[in-house]
Design a protein around this nucleic acid. Structure first.
Lengths: 339, 339
DNA sequence: CTGTTAGCGCCTTCAA
DNA sequence: TTGAAGGCGCTAACAG
C-alpha cells in the first residue's frame, strides 16, 4: 500500500490538511520551518498523491482524450506524437482512441473518455460536409459534460468547440496553379471522397486556379478517390484516357498509387505526366522521382490543437483559432509541359 | 453535476448499497423485481459510475499504459493501434507515452502512469544488450507498485515482466540465406546499433547463415547504421568499396536510403545489387523495385502483447510468452548473382 | 500559522 | 432480501 498524506502528516507530527496545503502550493500561511520539513519528509517517504482521491475532490484529472480515425496512419501518428508531447509539457497526459471506420466507435470513445474524466477531447476526424447523427451526438455529449472539444475543421455545432484548421482551399489552389504555371492545361484531379470537407475545399482551390487562368473546368478530369494507394492505381488509366498531362492528387498515398500504375503503363514521370501530391510525407524525398507536394504539417497542427485545448481548459477561450497556410514543396515530379 | 448512485437510489426508493450491488452484478440476493427496476431506472437516468470514486475504492482502473519510443514511427504506430484495439475489446483503455530518445523521459512516464493507476505497462522499447540504469529503475518501480510489465525482448529483471518476442536471429538468418541461395558470397550487412539486442540477434542470424554455407565471416562487410534513412545513404559507398553484390539491411528505412544512394551511383537494383530489408512495411510493394523483406508484424506483436498484459493483470501468469517466427517476402529487389 | 470537520461518490461489511 | 455505517485518500472551508 502506498504512503498516503496521513502517513506523511503523522511522520511530521502535523495534520494532513497542512501537508496538503504545502504540497499543493496553496497561499502560504505556513511557517517556513514546517513547510520545509513537510517537503523534505514527503520526498523522503516518496509520497505521491493518489490520483483518484484527488480527482474525486478536485474534478481535475489532467488528462485529455485524443480520438483519431487510425493511429496506424502516418498523418495521425505524427499528429498524435505532437499532441502527446505538447500535453505532457503542460502536465497533461493523453488517452488514445482509434475509432477505425465507425462513427459508433468514435461515439463510444467520447462516452468512455468522458467517464474517465478527461478535461477535453481532441477529435481528429476528417469531417463530412454534412455532420452525421453520431457526430452530433458526440458534440452534444461533450457539451452536456461541459468539456471542450477541438477539431481540425469547422463544424457548426453550438458546443464549446475549438477549431484548428488548415487552409485546404489554398492548398488546392497552390498545387493547381503550380501546374498551370508550368504550362499544363489538362490537369487531372484525383480527389478524396466528395462528402468530405477537406476534399471539397481542395477541389474548390483547384477550380479557382483554373478559373483564374481562364481554363474551363472539365468535370471529366475529376476522379473520386478515397485517399488510399489503390485509388491512384485505379485512377490513372481513367485520367490518361482524358488526355491529362498533369495530375493533382489530394494526398501522397494516392500519388504513390499513380507512380505504381505509371510503371505498368511505361509512363515516365515527370516527362509524360507531372504529378503534385498533398501532405508532403517524408517519403516524397526518397522516391525515385521525388514528389512535389503541398505541405500539411501534422506535427504543427497537432501541437497547435493541443495548445488550443489547454487554453480552452484554462478558460482562456479568447485564444483564437489558427488557419494554417499551405506551402508547396517543388520536387522532380512536376515539370514544364513539353510542346 | 452528473447523476450519482444516490440519485438512482432515491428515484428507486431504495438504498444506494443495493443499487451498487445490482449494477455490479454481485451475487444476487436481490429480488428480480427490484433488480429490474434498478436497471431500468439507472439506464433511464443515464447513470454512469464515477471513475474516480470507483477507482478510489476498488483500485481498478481498467487502464493500461503504453510507452513507445516514437508513435510517429511506422512500426510503433501500427503496434499502438493493435494494442489499443485489443485493450478496448477487453474493456481497457490505453494511455500513451512517447519517450523520444530519453530514458529519463521513459522513466518519468512510468512514474506518472503508475500514479494514474494503470494496471499494467507495455514497454515497447528496443532494449539494449546492457540494460541502462534508468531502465532498471523503470522495472523496479513497476515491481514496487506490483504491476506487470510487458516488453518485446527478454530482459533479465526479477519484476513481473512478460515478454512477447520476435525471432530476430531467425529473421537475420532467413534474409542472409536467401541471398546466399541466390549465389551471393559477398553480402554486405547494414546493421542497427551494436548495443541493441535485436540488432545483435539479426547479426547472429547473418553469421549463422554464412557459416552454414561455408562462407567466412568478413567484418569489413558490416556497417553500423541507426535504422534511419540516412544510414542507408551513408552505408552504400562504403559497402560498394568492399565489393558487395548484395546487401541485407536491418530495416526497410535504411533500405530506402540505399535505394536513394544507388540512384546517385547509377547503380541498378537488383541487377547490380540485390537488397533484402527487414520489417516488410507497406511501402515495399510500391517502390519502383519492390523490396524483398523479412516480415515483422507490428500489429500481431502488438495484439499479442496486449493479450499477454491482460492475462497478467488477471493473474493468469501461466500464459506463456510467444516467439514470433519471421517469414520472408521475396520481391524484385533480390535476384540470382550474375556470373 | 495550523488543526478540525466534512464531504467527493462509491463499495463492502455487517446487521436487520 | 435489504439498509446503515464506515472508509478509500484527499481537499476545502472554517475554527482556533
Amino acid at each position: 500500500m502506498r504512503v498516503t498524506i496521513k502517513d506523511v502528516a503523522r511522520e511530521c507530527g502535523i495534520s494532513a490538511a497542512t501537508v496538503s496545503l504545502v504540497l499543493n502550493d496553496k497561499e502560504c500561511r505556513v511557517s517556513e520551518a514546517t513547510r520545509a520539513k513537510i517537503l523534505r519528509i514527503a520526498a523522503e517517504m516518496n509520497y505521491r498523491p493518489n490520483h483518484f482521491a484527488v480527482g474525486l475532490v478536485t474534478r481535475k484529472t489532467h488528462t485529455i482524450g485524443l480520438i483519431v480515425p487510425d493511429v496506424g496512419n502516418f498523418h495521425f501518428a505524427e499528429m498524435s506524437k505532437a499532441i502527446e508531447q505538447e500535453c505532457r509539457n503542460n502536465g497533461y497526459i493523453v488517452i488514445l482512441g482509434s475509432y477505425g471506420e465507425s462513427d459508433e466507435q468514435a461515439y463510444a470513445y467520447f462516452k468512455e473518455f468522458i467517464d474517465k474524466g478527461v478535461e477535453g477531447i481532441i477529435f481528429a476526424k476528417p469531417m463530412l460536409v454534412e455532420l452525421s447523427e453520431k457526430d452530433r451526438q458526440c458534440f452534444a455529449l461533450a457539451e452536456s459534460a461541459s468539456i471542450p472539444v477541438v477539431t481540425f475543421e469547422p463544424v457548426e455545432v453550438q458546443a464549446t468547440v475549438g477549431v484548428v484548421s488548415y487552409d485546404y482551399e489554398a492548398g488546392g489552389y497552390l498545387a493547381s496553379k503550380h501546374l498551370i504555371d508550368l504550362g499544363h492545361r489538362r490537369i487531372g484531379c484525383l480527389t478524396g471522397p466528395d462528402n468530405m470537407i477537406s476534399s471539397v475545399a481542395r477541389r474548390e482551390g483547384y477550380k479557382r486556379a483554373l478559373a483564374e487562368a481562364g481554363i474551363p473546368f472539365d468535370p471529366t478530369l475529376l476522379y473520386e478517390g478515397d485517399f488510399a494507394v489503390q485509388s491512384g492505381i485505379e485512377a490513372l488509366p481513367h485520367l490518361l484516357g482524358q488526355g491529362v498531362t498533369a495530375l493533382f492528387t489530394f494526398n501522397d498515398m494516392m500519388a504513390l498509387g499513380v507512380y505504381k500504375a505509371a510503371r505498368q503503363y511505361k509512363l515516365k514521370i515527370p516527362t509524360d505526366l507531372s504529378i503534385v501530391g498533398f501532405d508532403d510525407t517524408f517519403l516524397n524525398e526518397i522516391l525515385e522521382v521525388p514528389l512535389t507536394s503541398v505541405t500539411h504539417p501534422a506535427d504543427s497542427l497537432g501541437k497547435e490543437s493541443a495548445k488550443r485545448m489547454l487554453s480552452l481548459i484554462r478558460g482562456e477561450a479568447s485564444y483564437e483559432g489558427s488557419l494554417f497556410p499551405p506551402t508547396l514543396m517543388v520536387r522532380g515530379s512536376s515539370v514544364r509541359l513539353r510542346v
